[in-house]
């Protein structure tokens, strides 16, 4: 490959730098709305009475509800040179259930950046690790994501 790398030294320097923290208040209505949007009718997400009889003793959030939360801003901002983005995938580790009223503090960091030629041309892969910590200081979940960016065809 003779193509020049689109990964700048600034981007490399951003790897491992943790973002600012942001604390998300978990609202019951947001959990119910999320469960409805994904089409999951499990009563532990939307039926208070049934959820109280469950092992959790009340409503909990679906496993991917964390996707509705945001982290604080990056201390070092990384911009891919390509404007089109795709989500490559996620890896989750789950430790604690999330309930209405929880306050989940989210931080994220870039764990890796690499490039590869794909069917949409040169593609940049940015991997991030996001940590979700509840109000008791316990890690509720960790998510590792891979974001893919590429040059849209009409701009090349």
């Amino acid at each position: 490959m003779t193509q020049e790398s689109a990964i700048t030294p600034e981007m490399k320097a951003a790897i491992g730098v943790e973002s600012e923290a942001y604390t998300n208040e978990v609202e019951k209505g947001a959990i119910i709305k999320f469960a409805r949007a994904i089409g999951d009718t499990n009563p532990i997400y939307n039926d208070e009475e049934a959820a109280r009889k469950s092992r959790y003793g009340g409503l909990v959030a679906p496993p991917t509800f964390f996707r509705s939360m945001r982290s604080g801003p990056m201390k070092v901002d990384v911009q891919s040179p390509y404007s089109a983005n795709l989500d490559g995938g996620s890896e989750w580790e789950y430790y604690e259930p999330v309930r209405p009223g929880d306050r989940i503090t989210v931080t994220t960091k870039i764990s890796n950046i690499f490039e590869r030629a794909g069917r949409l041309g040169n593609m940049m892969f940015i991997q991030r690790e996001t940590k979700y910590v509840n109000q008791f200081g316990s890690t509720a979940a960790i998510q590792r994501t891979t974001g893919i960016s590429y040059q849209p065809p009409d701009e090349s």
Binding site: I38, D40, N42, P62, P63, T64, R67, L86, D87, S90
Partner: peptide
């Protein structure tokens, strides 16, 4: 489809 929506579907596969 949002990738994360498909992720939610696979989460439900397991939790169901």
């Amino acid at each position: 489809l949002h990738g994360a929506l498909k992720n939610a579907f696979l989460g439900q596969v397991m939790t169901d």
